[in-house]
């Protein structure tokens, strides 16, 4: 177990290096850079006087160097204009758009991003778990069809539209302010019960919207897995021996059917980030998603590259955690041995 964990952690290093190179490359694909874009904007609004200030930044951030050198400077493997100063040295980069270090931009958005994603995962699990069990034990009942259908409708509605509609209705019916994480009067105020309630009420819509797309898939998987287990010999044997239906269900099949829940933790992270980008934009939530979107659009390259890299790391860690959890919970899975005998 320990050996396996260490080995997985070690293989993550080259993987991370490749990912960082890939993200940096992708970010730099579009023509031009942040500074050339800003210069054009300033010129067009007749503010040529400020252009000079920007030219200064180009040298400061080594944007005039060739690609691999820029990458190496960013990671901290190569001395930049001011010596070794990159990710490895703890410098996460500079955001041009915000004119702040990247960690100051990303930092405040992280708690909410985590809360929102955790709430969404919780929502997906809480909703799909009972429905999945219900559908499997009462296969082809009206309830089975009804819930499955609802799940699919949630999946089939474009997220942004569902978000818009729910947000509008929440405003019309419950007088919730449009978008945002809380009513505007609480922003920047110290935490209080009212503020927490306001935040909670604003989290409902995004959680549902992001959650619905995952719920249907989860219900389907749980139902299929459980059905498979229920048709197995040992269940029949146990039933023949007079075990109660409830105990029969909970004792073994359910534990087996839980695997997708655990296996999916790693998978959920990137898909939730993708899903929450659009929903966060629509609902005006200060998560990392819209920051990333803006950074990509304005080619604020260090900010965008850092966020992408950060999400990737999270995913890698998530995959590792879910693999380890699976091993703990399911004795049939052997680690390290691989499939070859």
């Amino acid at each position: 177990m320990l050996y396996y964990t260490v080995r997985r952690l070690l293989t993550m290093i080259p993987t991370l290096l490749v990912i960082s190179l890939l993200t940096f490359f992708i970010i730099e694909l579009p023509e031009g850079d942040y500074i050339s874009n800003q210069i054009a904007v300033l010129k067009s609004s007749g503010e040529s006087a400020s252009v000079a200030k920007l030219e200064f930044l180009r040298q400061e951030f080594a944007l005039d160097r060739p690609f691999f050198e820029r990458f190496a400077i960013w990671v901290g493997l190569w001395p930049g204009p001011h010596g070794f100063d990159g990710l490895l040295q703890g410098n996460w980069g500079w955001s041009f758009e915000y004119d702040k270090p990247v960690y100051e931009v990303v930092g405040p958005t992280l708690p909410l991003t985590i809360v929102l994603n955790a709430a969404t995962i919780l929502f997906v699990y809480l909703v799909s778990f009972p429905i999945g069990i219900y559908s499997a034990t009462r296969q082809y009942s009206w309830g089975d069809y009804g819930f499955t259908f609802l799940g699919y409708v949630g999946l089939a509605t474009p997220n942004f539209l569902l978000g818009l509609v729910l947000m509008y209705l929440a405003n019309a019916w419950f007088d919730l302010s449009i978008g945002g994480l809380m009513d505007p009067e609480y922003i920047g105020e110290p935490w209080s019960v009212d503020k927490a309630l306001s935040v909670l009420s604003h989290l409902i819509v995004p959680t549902i919207v992001i959650g619905t797309s995952g719920t249907a898939a989860m219900i389907r998987r749980l139902r299929a897995n459980l059905l498979d287990e229920l048709h197995k010999q040992y269940v029949t044997t146990a039933r023949a021996k007079g075990m109660k239906e409830r105990a029969l269900l909970v004792k073994y099949p359910l534990r087996m059917a839980l695997n997708p829940f655990i296996a999916d933790i790693g998978n959920l992270i990137p898909s939730l980030v993708s899903g929450s980008v659009i929903v966060s934009v629509v609902l005006n939530l200060p998560t990392v998603g819209p920051v990333l979107l803006n950074a990509l659009q304005s080619q604020d390259q260090f900010l965008a590259a850092f966020i992408l890299l950060f999400v990737s790391v999270l995913t890698l860690v998530g995959m590792l955690v879910s693999d380890l959890l699976l091993a703990v919970l399911d004795p049939r899975i052997r680690l390290g041995g691989g499939s070859r005998s």
Binding site: I19, L22, N267, V273, V277, L292, I307, L308, M319
Partner: peptide
């Protein structure tokens, strides 16, 4: 299996680690 398997496994890991939508955006801008 073997080397090929573990290389492809790494590749899969890398691809899955990148969030799709931002990637899509960045590439489409390119």
């Amino acid at each position: 299996g073997g080397i090929i398997d573990s290389m492809i496994q790494r590749l899969i890991e890398i691809m899955r680690a990148l969030p799709e939508l931002p990637l899509w955006m960045a590439l489409s801008a390119a």
